[in-house]
Structure formats: structure tokens, C-alpha cells
Design a binder for these strands. Sequence first.
DNA 1: GTCTATACCGAGATAGAC
DNA 2: GTCTATCTCGGTATAGAC
Lengths: 195, 195
Amino acid sequence: MIENQPKKPSKSDRTRAQILEAARLLFAEHGYDGASIRDVAAHASIDPAMVIRYFRSKDELFARAAVVDLQLPALRVIDRTTIGETLIRRFLEIWEGPASGPGMAILLRSATSNEFAAEKLRDVFGNQVRPVVAAVADPAADADRRAGLVSSQLLGLAMCRYLLRLPPVVALSHDEIIQNVGPTLQRYVVGEDVS
Amino acid sequence: MIENQPKKPSKSDRTRAQILEAARLLFAEHGYDGASIRDVAAHASIDPAMVIRYFRSKDELFARAAVVDLQLPALRVIDRTTIGETLIRRFLEIWEGPASGPGMAILLRSATSNEFAAEKLRDVFGNQVRPVVAAVADPAADADRRAGLVSSQLLGLAMCRYLLRLPPVVALSHDEIIQNVGPTLQRYVVGEDVS
DNA sequence: GTCTATACCGAGATAGAC
DNA sequence: GTCTATCTCGGTATAGAC
């Protein structure tokens, strides 16, 4: 067999990982246009030509860097009465927790001016957020609209707090966010408004 | 007197206006990086050198294009019991009404990757949104936080509906938006939650 | 006032020596 | 596998002819 994949952190693999990590950092901070191949190379202490050698193009590098897994299926056991709080807590973990990477920041930072990033972001909400909302939405038929409303509040909060860094939103404590935004999400998911 | 300003739509002025209009359109649609001087010139049926001649640089052109006046003082007569609905109705006018230009789209499109645009957007909320919220917030001392929460919902809605074009959010009718988002804003401005 | 031509720069990407 | 050198392209901005 040619299968000698296990246990081979070859130098190539480590270099590749370094490049990818540098790319994720810089794409998250400066966006697709703002982060150049040269920047990524410098940050990984490597030659720019290597970046192209390992990933064929900037687009492909971005595609590799912009993978997002919100791990929402972990919320499988859901309580309809506390879904709002559950969602906002998970949101804070994703954006500020130690485990989750900068995947969402990468997408959101570039989504306004890069159609690929925009499409990926729409995919995230269609494939990851929507199913969770649909599982508990009040008539499930409204799942699309409810998931859309949830997304509008959560993306807006992320924009203001992590990208735009609007001072009063940055200043909010986790408890304040949970207490204020939680009820909003709760109503969007299982509320009886609607027309 | 050298004052012959009135009644002189000289060819220069018209050209200047054409350039500015083209710039506002393209900056709103493609963002700062995505809209080049050449694009703007082509769209205004003019030579690229003229763009630089009229506005000294791309940065200055962007600064001229990115002026925003939400005209919120027009809401001076405010009813605390309907402030949420008032705000969301004004939001829809700003983004979809015939009068308002693409100013907000210009800023929001570029704010994630352009520090100047980000600063201008923070200014808009500090100088235009915050005062309105402060005028009716419930303890007025919480005005900053309340205005921040309002901004998070409104910017998120704008992102999803007009920039990201998330299908379920695009599909929302004006009435659905008013009925669903209005109560959220109402609670953010005069609600009694908080910690 | 307007446009042609171009300078200059930094981007992404490639060829080929080592 | 790695790096030096370079190509090409498109960006902003400028010089100078008309």
C-alpha cells in the first residue's frame, strides 16, 4: 500500500499548517483584499512563492481558510423555553471561546465585497443555523423567516462588537448580552408575532 | 465681487456631479477596494485622469461619496410607546426609499476592511443614532448601551437584506419587518431588562 | 479643460537555479 | 523543497500635448 499517511508530520505538512494559520489570522483581521500573499508569507516566515506552491492560488488559500463549523448539532437536546439563551451563549463561545477559530470573522470580514465569502456565509446559515431553528420553530413552516431574523440579530451583533468595534457594543458584558439579546432570539424562534 | 456662484451649473460642476454620482453607485455596490478609479471614470463616461483632477485622490473621492445624513431629527416628536416602530419605519425609508441615497450602503460595504469607513460609521451612530435613543431611553444613563443594541439589530438587518442578500431576509415584506423587528427595538430603547 | 501617454507601485503568479 | 528573479497585470497618480 502507498498508505503511509498516519504518523508523518513531515516538514511539508508543518509548513502547510503554518501558512494556513497565518492566512486565517490575516484574512480574519484584514479581509480578502487587505491580506496579500506577501503578508501571509512574511507572517509565516516563509517565501511568498511557497504559499502559491502549497495552495495553488490566493482564491484556493482563502477557500481553505474560510471553513466554518459552528458545531450546533451539539445543541441537539433543545429546550424550547430557553432556546434564545442557548443560541446567544453558543454565539459568544464561537466568537470569544478558545476552541473556535476565526472562521466566522474571516467570512464576515470579506462577505461585503467578495462574492465567494458571501456565498459561503449564506451556506453557513442555510446549512447550519436554519436546521437548528427549524427543529424548534413554532410553526416549522416559518423556519426560514425565523432563521433569517435570528441571523440578522446575530450577524449585526458580531459586526458591531468584533469587526466594527462600536464602543458601547464592545463594552457589553456577556451577561448583558445574554439578558438583552437572548429574549430577542427567543421571540424570533418561538414567538407568536408574524403576519 | 467675484461672487458669481448662483446660477452657474458650469460644465465643470456637472462633470463633478457625474463623477460623484458614479462613485457613490460603485462604492455602494462593490466597496472601496472593488471600485477602481477606472471603473468610476468609465461609468461617468469620462477619462480616469479627470477623476483625479476633480477629486485629488481616491481617498478624497471616497470621503466625499461617503456622507450620510439619516435625518433623524425629523423624528423630533417622539412617542415612547411607538419608538420601536418609528425607528424601523425610518430604517426602511433610508434603505429603500427614493429620497435617501446609498450613503449607508457605501459605509457598511467598506467598513469591514477600511478603517476610514469604519470610523465614519461609528460617527453616524454616535452623532445621529445615539442622540435619538438618548432622548427617550428609560433611564437615560443607559443610552449608550441601548443605542448599541439598536445598532446591532439594524446593522445586522441591513447586512442580511441589502449586502449579503440572505434569501429569507430579502423575502421579508415591510410589514413583516415592522411587526417583528419593531418590538425588538422597542424593548432595547425603553425596556426594563438590563443588568 | 480635456485627454494621451506613461510613470510607478504592489499585487498574484511563474521559471528555473540551487 | 526552497528561494531568487522576474513576468504580467491592474491599480493610483502625474506630465504634458492639444
